[in-house]
Nucleic acid binder design. Structure first.
Length: 275
DNA sequence: CGCATTTCCTGGTAGC
DNA sequence: TGCTACCAGGAAATGC
């Protein structure tokens, strides 16, 4: 999405912002935008960060059902329209933000002031950045006793990993989602980091994973859902070993994994039983 | 502080 | 057909 937005928005000046959602912490201070020029389109994890010429930043998070589009939603879709941002220029000069379940965010903050966004403030390194080495990733995992799956979702060891890609990468790396993060071996941590990079890169190339609502700026569905190995396949056969995939809840999130390919180590099982 | 649980929100769907 | 109950999950808030 960032790659789509950059050539469209960069250098444009915001003319007006219309807020159609009830104002609150998720939609705030948009009145500051008009008159400011969009200086860039950045991203950290799942947050879009657009620096503005007046020293502010426009922060956008899609939540799960957020959609940014160049054209107004057709027909009944308009009832979930939350923000209409008008820009200078006479071609594709309006940005529409829809958000069915209102888990998204669309707000303005002074640049770098993320006190209202603690996850962004404490975000881990970018998964595709070379600065994140296998050694650093392994060290980050060593700092937590939380199960690896919810730890990945916390955005702390690495930024931008959501439920779908966590399940996919853990399957690829053959790691049980309940494995305590600090019990993941150096070798497995390295394999997991590579699996995360591979699945994220492939999904970006496929323009994302569209299950229901996700759309590109041009309104197209992403095609990566067809290439998922585990997410959405609970009860089906594991594509590696044929065993029926398990569907459970871990950390309050639906989790699919292969009980044969992704085993807990005997040491972990023994300790869990002792408790 | 760390960690687990609950909350927000609404469309879709299962079950009756 | 129409009703209720429940599920999906990012991040933040709350509880312990």
């Amino acid at each position: 999405m960032r790659r789509e937005l950059e050539p469209w928005l960069i250098g444009r000046t915001v003319r007006s912002v219309e807020l159609l959602a009830p104002p609150g912490p998720k939609y705030r201070d948009l009145h500051r935008a008009p008159g400011q020029r969009i200086e860039g389109v950045g991203r950290r994890g799942k947050f879009l960060i657009l620096p503005l010429s007046g020293g502010d930043e426009l922060i956008v998070h899609l939540g799960m059902t957020g959609v940014i589009s160049q054209c107004p939603p057709p027909g009944a879709g308009g009832k979930h329209l939350r923000v209409v941002m008008r820009l200078d220029g006479d071609h594709l000069s309006t940005l529409y933000f829809q958000d069915i379940r209102r888990f998204g965010r669309f707000l303005i903050v002074p640049a770098g002031e993320y006190g209202e966004l603690p996850t962004l403030a404490a975000l881990g390194p970018e998964p595709l950045d070379d600065a994140l080495t296998a050694a650093r990733f392994y060290a980050a995992l060593g700092r937590s006793s939380v199960a690896i799956k919810p730890y990945l979702l916390s955005q702390r060891p690495v930024a931008g990993v959501g439920n779908i890609y966590a399940d996919e990468a853990l399957w690829t790396a053959r790691i049980h989602p309940l494995t305590p993060a600090r019990e993941v071996s150096r070798k497995k941590a390295s394999v997991l980091l590579q699996a995360l990079r591979d699945v994220l890169s492939a999904s970006i190339a496929a323009q994302g994973t569209t299950f229901d609502d996700y759309r590109t700026v041009r309104g197209e569905a992403g095609s990566f859902a067809r290439r998922l190995n585990v997410y959405g396949r609970g009860g089906d056969a594991c594509l590696r070993c044929g065993r029926q995939l398990s569907k459970t809840v871990i950390g309050g999130r639906g989790t699919v994994f292969c009980p044969r390919c992704q085993r807990l180590s005997r040491a972990v099982v023994r300790r869990a039983k002792a408790l």
